[in-house]
Design a protein around this nucleic acid. Structure first.
Lengths: 353, 353
DNA sequence: CAACCCCATGTAATCGATTACATGCAACTT
DNA sequence: AAGTTGCATGTAATCGATTACATGGGGTTG
C-alpha cells in the first residue's frame, strides 16, 4: 500500500521526449518556420496549399506551440491573475466559475492567488504580476497591492490592466464591477420596516471592509426612509463567517430587550445566527425575523429558508472577466458596472408580532 | 458613471516600460549576467562581494526574473494545474485552499481548470499540459485526460507528473490521495443500524462516479455487517447536489412505506432532503433520521445539525500538493495515501422510534 | 620551480517562437 | 517593354534567462 519508488520508475520511463517544435513542423510541411507561425496566427497571409500542408503536419505531429517561447517573444502570457481574500469562502466559488468560463472562452488561463491575510503572499503576487507573468488581474480583495514598499529606488514596474470586482477600490483608476450595496441594504431594511419591525438589529462585516461601510450606510438610509431611529446598541459586530453569526446569535439570546428582526450582512452569518436562536428555543420568524445577504445556494434550503438579497455572482464574474479582456485587447471599457440585485423573500422574515 | 476612454488613457500613459532585465542588473553590479544568475540560483558559487553587489543592484532596480525566459531555457514553469469537475461546488473550495497554500510555500503557482463537463475544455487542458505550460497536475475529476483521441500519428507528448486526489483513477499508475470511502460508508450504515434502524435508504451519487461505487459498496458492507437485507427499492438516485437532495426528499414524502433513516452520500443532498421533509411536515430526526457525508461547513449549522462523515479536506489538498512537489523534485513518494475520516454525531440522527 | 587544481568569473550557445526585413515572382499599368 | 505593385515566402534578429565551456589567477604539491 505504501510503495516507494515512484520517482525511480518515472526517471526510467521518461527520457524527456522533446516536444514537437515549430521547426519539426516546418520541415515536415516543407516550409519555413515563419510560414508555420503565420499559418496559425494569420492564415489569410498564407497560400491555401501551404496552409493545408502545415495543418496536416501539425495534425500528424500533434504540435502545440511552446508558450514560454511565445510569451518571451510576444510579451503576452494569456494568463490572468485572480486575487481573493479567501478561496474557501462559499461566496467566491461561483464568482470564480463565472470568471473562469469567460476567460477560457477568450483563450485565457486563470491563476488564483488566495491572499489568506498574509502580507508576504501579497508581496509575492505583486512581484508576480510585475514580472509579467500575467497579462492582467482581477482583484476581489478590496485594495491594490505592493504599495511601493520594497525597492527604495525607482521600481519601474510594468503596469498591467486591473479590474476590481465586488469590493470597489477607492482611489484606484481602474474599472469597478460591483452591486449597489448601499441601495440593496437600504431596500432590505425598508422591507423589514414595512412589515412592522421597529427594533431592527444589524450584524456587520469587518469594519475596515468597503462592503461593510456601504451596507451600513444603506442600513441607516433604510431606517431613515422608514422613519426609524438608529440605535447603536443594535449594531452587532461580525465578519461574514458562520462562526461570527453563531456568536452574534449568542449575544442576542442573552439580551433582555431583543430586536424583532435581524439583518445579517451575509447569508453565512444569518444561517449561523438562526441556528443559535433555534437552539436556544426561539422561533424564526415567529419570535425573531432574520434576513441575509448574498443568496448563496444554502439560503434556499436553510430552515427556515432565508430571506435575502440575491447577488448575481456568476454574472459578476463574467462581467469582470469581460471587462478585463476588453482592456487587454485594447477595446474601450466602462469604468463602472453595477449589476442588479434582487430582494428574495422566503420564510425567515415575517411581520412583526 | 459609464465613462468610456479607459483604453485611450491606458495607451497614453503606458509607453510599455521595459522591465528590468538581468543585463541591467549585471551592468549596475559590474558583473556578467552569468554571475547575476548564479548569485540567485547558487549563491555559494559566487564570492560574497559579488553577491552583495548583485543583491544591492537587484534591490535598487526591483529586478524580477522574466519567467517566460527562465521557463524557456530551463523547461520548468513552476506552475501546477488543478483539474476539477466543478469549481462552484462547496466541497472543493477548502481542498483548493489546502493545495494552494502548500504549493505557494514551495514556490509554485496554481492554475485552475474547471472542466464543467465539457470535453472541449478537457481537450484544451490536455493540450495545455502537453505544451509544457505546467510542471505537473492534480486531478480531482476521476480520470486522466485526452486519451490519444486527436492526432492520428504519434502524439509524442511530454508526460508530466500527475496526482489523483479524492477520486482514485483506476488504471493509472500515479499516486492517489483519498479517504477510504467504502469503510466510511460502511461505518455510517452500521451506526444507523446500531440505533435500531432497519429500513435505511441510500441516496447515491452519479452512477459512473468512483466515489459512488465505493460508498455504495460500503453501504452494502454495513448492511451485511448489521445483518440487514439489501433492498434496491431503498436506493434513491442523486448527484451530490442540493437539488437532487430536494428531489430525493420529494420522492420519499410520496411513499407509503418510508425508511426510518436516510444515508445521503453528500451533505448537500442531506440538507436539501431535510428541507423537503420538514416542509412536508415530517420531523427530523423524530420521524426520519438523516445522515450526510463530507462535513462541509454548513453541516454543523443545518437545522437539525447534520450527522455526517468528516473528511479532512484541507489536509487532503495539502497531501496531494506535497506528493506532487516531491514528484517534481525527484523525491520518492508514496503511491497511495489514505487520510482518516471521522464519524461526526449531531442531531439529525436519532434512535429508531 | 614546475605542474596541477580549484575557484570565481566571463563568453556565448541555447531554449522555441514571432516578426521585421529581404527576396523573387506574377500580374498589372501606361 | 519597362516599371510598379503586391503577394507568398524565406532569412535571421530578437525576446531574457540559464548554463556549458573557457579563462585566468592563487594556492597546493612533489
Amino acid at each position: 500500500m505504501d510503495d516507494l519508488g515512484q520517482s525511480d520508475s518515472a526517471e526510467r520511463e521518461d527520457p524527456r521526449i522533446r516536444a514537437t517544435r515549430i521547426q519539426d513542423v516546418a520541415k515536415l510541411a516543407d516550409v519555413s518556420t515563419a510560414t508555420v507561425s503565420r499559418a496559425l496566427a494569420t492564415p489569410e497571409r498564407v497560400s491555401p496549399e501551404a496552409r493545408a500542408r502545415v495543418l496536416e503536419a501539425i495534425a500528424k505531429t500533434g504540435y502545440v506551440p511552446n508558450p514560454a517561447a511565445r510569451s518571451l517573444r510576444s510579451q503576452k502570457t494569456f494568463m490572468v491573475l485572480v486575487v481573493l481574500p479567501d478561496l474557501s469562502n462559499t461566496f467566491f466559488s461561483k464568482i470564480l466559475r463565472g470568471i473562469e468560463e469567460t476567460l477560457f472562452d477568450a483563450g485565457y488561463g486563470m491563476i488564483i492567488s488566495d491572499l489568506d491575510g498574509s502580507p508576504a503572499k501579497e508581496a509575492h503576487f505583486a512581484a508576480f504580476t510585475a514580472a509579467g507573468r500575467v497579462d492582467g488581474a482581477i482583484l476581489l480583495n478590496g485594495h491594490l497591492f505592493g504599495q511601493s514598499r520594497e525597492g527604495e529606488g525607482q521600481p519601474a514596474r510594468i503596469a498591467i490592466p486591473l479590474v476590481a470586482l465586488c469590493e470597489a477600490i477607492p482611489g484606484a483608476d481602474i474599472p469597478q464591477i460591483e452591486i449597489d450595496n448601499r441601495a440593496a441594504a437600504s431596500r432590505m431594511t425598508q422591507h423589514l420596516a414595512s412589515l412592522g419591525h421597529r427594533r431592527i438589529a444589524y450584524v456587520s462585516g469587518p469594519a475596515s471592509n468597503i462592503l461593510e461601510r456601504e451596507r451600513f450606510l444603506g442600513f441607516k438610509d433604510g431606517l431613515e426612509a422608514a422613519g426609524l431611529p438608529f440605535d447603536p446598541a443594535f449594531v452587532i459586530p461580525g465578519d461574514y463567517t458562520i462562526e461570527s453569526g453563531v456568536a452574534a446569535g449568542q449575544g442576542l439570546v442573552a439580551r433582555k430587550t431583543r430586536p424583532t428582526a435581524v439583518f445579517c450582512t451575509s447569508d453565512e452569518m444569518a444561517i449561523g445566527l438562526m441556528r443559535t436562536l433555534l437552539s436556544a428555543g426561539l422561533r424564526v420568524p415567529e419570535d425573531i425575523s432574520v434576513a441575509g445577504f448574498d443568496d448563496i445556494e444554502f439560503a434556499a434550503v436553510a430552515e427556515p429558508s432565508l430571506t435575502t438579497i440575491h447577488q448575481p455572482r456568476r454574472e459578476l464574474g463574467q462581467a469582470a472577466a469581460t471587462v478585463l479582456i476588453d482592456l487587454l485587447q485594447g477595446r474601450p471599457t466602462r469604468k463602472q458596472i453595477r449589476l442588479e440585485t434582487e430582494l428574495v423573500i422566503r420564510d425567515s422574515v415575517a411581520p412583526a408580532g
